[in-house]
Simulated scan of single mutants.
Amino acid sequence: MSDATATIPPGAQLLGREWLGTDENGQALIRFQAQPAFTNRHGTIQGGFLAAMLDSATGICALAALPPDLTVVTKGLDTRFLKPAAVGPITALARVVERTDRDMVVHADLVDADSIVVADATARLRILAKK
C-alpha cells in the first residue's frame, strides 16, 4: 500500500473504509461498514451510500497503483444497483482496467456478507500531480 492510501479522509471514515490489501488476482480489497443510518425507507442501504463506497473504492485502488507524487480525481462514475444491500460489512473488489499517462479507468464490485454483488461501477479518473 502506498502512502496515498494511508490517510483516511472524513468521508471514508464515515463509510468505515478499511484497506484489506490485494487478492491473488491483484484486485484491491476494501471493506466498508454499512450503518443503520445509511438505510432508506425499505431498510436497505440507500443507493447514494453505495455510490460513495464505489467512488471511494475506485479512487483508493487507483491511488494504490500510482507513485506517491500523483493523485486522481473522479471524472465520472457509472454505477449499477443490482440487489438490495443490508446493514453490515460490504467489501469492494476493485481493479484498474485501463491507464494512460493522464487517465485511468477502474472497475469495482460491492459484495455483501453473503458474497452477493449488490452494486458495481466503472470510474473514469484523471491523474494529476500532487500539490
Score class of each variant (00 low, 15 high):
I45R: 08
D112T: 00
N40M: 07
L66M: 14
V96N: 00
D103A: 14
I116R: 12
G11L: 11
H42S: 11
V111A: 04
L63F: 14
A52E: 12
V117F: 03
V118R: 05
A121G: 07
L20C: 08
F81E: 06
G59W: 05
M1L: 15
V106N: 05
V72L: 12
T5C: 13
R31T: 00
D120G: 05
A123K: 13
T100M: 02
S2V: 03
A92I: 00
Q46M: 03
L110W: 04
L128E: 05
S115G: 06
T122Y: 07
A65E: 14
A92N: 09
V118G: 04
G43L: 12
I90K: 06
A6N: 04
L125S: 13
M1T: 10
Q46F: 08
N25S: 13
T79V: 10
F49S: 07
D120K: 04
T5Q: 11
Q27E: 13
F49N: 08
A57T: 08
A92W: 03
D23S: 09
L128K: 11
K130Q: 07
A113S: 03
S56A: 10
P89E: 09
D55A: 09
A6L: 09
V96R: 05
P36A: 15
R80P: 08
E18A: 08
R124G: 06
A94E: 02
G21P: 03
L14T: 04
R102S: 07
T58M: 11
A34L: 03
R41H: 11
R126P: 03
R31Q: 04
K83S: 04
T91W: 01
A6M: 08
D120T: 00
V87L: 01
V97I: 11
A62P: 09
V72W: 13
N40P: 06
N40T: 02
A108T: 00
F49L: 05
